[in-house]
Amino acid sequence: MSIHAAANWLSQHEPIWAITIRGNIGVTGEADPDEIFALLDDQYAQAILKQTRNNAMSAKEISETCEISISTVYRRTERLIECGLLAEQRVAQSDGNHYSLYEAQLDELTVCLTDDGFDVTVSGKATGDLADRFTEMWEGL
């Protein structure tokens, strides 16, 4: 807890965080199965998901650790977010600009063969900060 708490205290000194987490826990059926298969087959998308599994990273950090060009990172993250495999957090900076942090949303993928073809279900994990999930829970009441 202590490291987490220390990180929390540090974040207190930054400007107010404006967070947008796209896609909630257990998003299903919205994404195109073919697109998900294509992404999971893609080595860059795989690398991004692996790197961001337990920690939110900026596009620059992903680009450096995975040795992928920054434009590829942006293209892949956009597609991953659309499929609900990746979550984006927008972090406001004091100069008014903002940058994005990416964190893998994917926990488990279920593929069912039905009469209509493949039915893909993405089981997301609870991403984001404890405070954000707390807010989500309380506002959902």
Partner: peptide, 12 residues
């Protein structure tokens, strides 16, 4: 503290 941070981060 986490409830307060939820307010700060999400403007709630």
């Amino acid at each position: 503290f986490h409830a307060y941070r939820g307010y700060q981060r999400n403007n709630s």
